[in-house]
Amino acid sequence: METNTTLNYLQAHGIKPSLQRMAVMTYLIEHRTHPTADEIYTALHPSIPTLSKTTVYNTLKLLTEKGAALQLTIDERNCCFDADTSPHAHFLCTRCGRVYDMKLNQAELIKCACVPDKFQTEDAQLYLRGCCPRCAALNMDN
């Protein structure tokens, strides 16, 4: 991704750019694998030796607070992150651990919930768990 694109994206979300913030955001945008903070740190540390895990965690916290990224808790063991902040669902393959994006009609999802009067819904997340087609095919081969 171009540096200007990441810079503009951060500024549009009210985030003051820094080398570390730019690197983390660029990584998220370029790697749609829903990485964990540790995966991001491991990938970026060789090219930014002064980068600390604390900086990565703090950057991810800032990105999620400002709406520039999503924090996913689909897997109770790991928290992962997504640069795609548009309404969509996530599917966790319980065999390989990969997280997939799924199209979602958020308005329809909210209608499915019995939200009591006077509650105002701001966001809805849908997590699905099961077996992905790749793992299912591998299971059939055995």
Rank of each mutant, 00 (worst) to 15 (best):
V99E: 03
T36S: 10
L62T: 13
L72D: 06
C93M: 03
L19Y: 12
P35I: 09
C79R: 12
T36D: 02
S86C: 05
A69W: 07
T54H: 11
L7P: 00
A23F: 06
K61N: 15
I48K: 04
T55A: 15
L62E: 11
K103S: 12
A69S: 15
T54Q: 14
P87N: 10
M25Q: 13
I110Y: 04
Y41Q: 15
A43E: 10
A89H: 06
N142P: 04
N78M: 11
A137C: 02
V24S: 13
I74N: 14
K16T: 15
Q106C: 01
M140G: 06
C79W: 05
N139H: 10
N4C: 00
V99N: 00
E76T: 12
C114H: 06
A43C: 04
G97I: 10
L10G: 01
A23V: 03
I15E: 02
A136C: 05
A43G: 13
Y57C: 07
T6M: 07
F91G: 01
L51F: 10
I48C: 03
S86I: 09
G14K: 03
Y57D: 07
I15N: 08
L126P: 08
T3Q: 12
A23W: 02
K53N: 14
D101H: 10
P46A: 14
M102G: 00
D84T: 14
E39N: 05
D82H: 03
R134P: 01
N105R: 09
P87I: 08
N4D: 08
T64V: 10
C80S: 03
T55S: 13
A107T: 14
L138N: 02
T94P: 02
T94D: 12
L51V: 09
L109K: 08
D117W: 00
Y27M: 07
I29R: 09
K53T: 14
Y27H: 11
N78T: 05
I48W: 06
T3M: 08
D101C: 04
H34K: 08
A113E: 04
P133T: 06
D141C: 10
M140L: 15
H13Y: 12
Y127E: 03
R21C: 02
L128K: 00
A107M: 13
C131S: 00
L128Q: 03
C131N: 04
E122G: 13
I15R: 07
K103R: 14
P35Y: 09
P116M: 09
V24K: 08
I48S: 08
R129M: 11
Y127I: 05
C114L: 04
M22Y: 00
C132I: 00
V115C: 05
A12G: 15
V115S: 02
L28Y: 01
Q20T: 09
P87W: 10
L72T: 04
D101R: 09
L92D: 01
L62R: 09
A113D: 04
